[in-house]
Amino acid sequence: MKPSTFFYNIRQGFKGVFRNSVMSTASVLVLVACMILIGTIYVVIDTIDVNFKAINDLNVIEVRLDKSYNDEQIAEIGDALEQIRKTSPIIEKELVFVSADEHLQILKERFPDNDWINGILDSNEYNRSLYESGELSEEEGGSVLVDNPLRASYRLEFVNLSDFDEVTRVKSLIDEIKLKDESGKEFDAVDSTNDIRDNIELYGKVMNVKNTLYVAGIWLLAIFLIIALFVIMNTIKLGVFARRNEITFMRLCGATKSMIRMPFIVEGVIIGVFSAAVAFGLEFYLYQYLLRDIVASATNSAAGGGIIMGDFSGYALVLGLGFLAVGLFAGVISSSVSLKKYLKA
């Protein structure tokens, strides 16, 4: 297309938008609503994902080991767990052993300023240095060194938690693991209420919320998009109808279909791009100044820390491109459909 033709079509497209300012405004409003909806659902789902990763133990069964168990007994429980792991199709990863000291380190990383944890670490450090310089006997040192209230544990990580029956089965198998005391009498190695820790119910709930959001989001998106297409289509149809004589004449003059279509496509694109820009600005405001504040004030009071919400800049590219894509799609599709009738031969 020649540059002069290109600019002519751009001008015509703008004229079209303003010729029909009421309908154009309606189109922009519906399209903006549609985009904001998509954008908000997207950031909410992403926020859930991010926070999921932050609490990464949700899909883990942790088997805590009694402090009185010796290395052999711990290994025996490990073997039993390994057998269970092999029978379950929803546990894929290796069994992981986490010692009490490692637990302490993990806690230290998560809560670096916690006095209680730091106190334990400091006194252990101090006692170890005393022990190494010979000021404490092996016996004394050893007893001080295990002054860690945390327990060692085994971790089983599930890949798919939708199968609650299987999770329950695995838990009851773990509950049945036995050890033998010196007299050869069997006793329960793991107590289901005190030794098994899991967040699987919570995980299921969060998953449900997320899935509901996905489904609701896709439905709302589809409905809004159809409404938006309908409104833009009518906007452009009005323009096409107002200019039907021109279109007929253009065709009789030997104008190509693309030449006839172009001003209307431009009109649709202008509506789409403008809507994308408005939606982007609104979404920015909504996220940065409303959503984050609301979430912050709602979770600040709750124990266990707030919900992590990233800066809007992290979403800017995805949302910008997404809005633009929706706008262009809606604009081009609706103007093409509106013109179809007038382009036959």
Partner: peptide, 20 residues
Amino acid sequence: WKIPALRRTMGVVFQDFKLF
């Protein structure tokens, strides 16, 4: 798609003028 090319070889003064 060839019709525009044909029509560009023709100049028609329409009976109803078709002026805007």
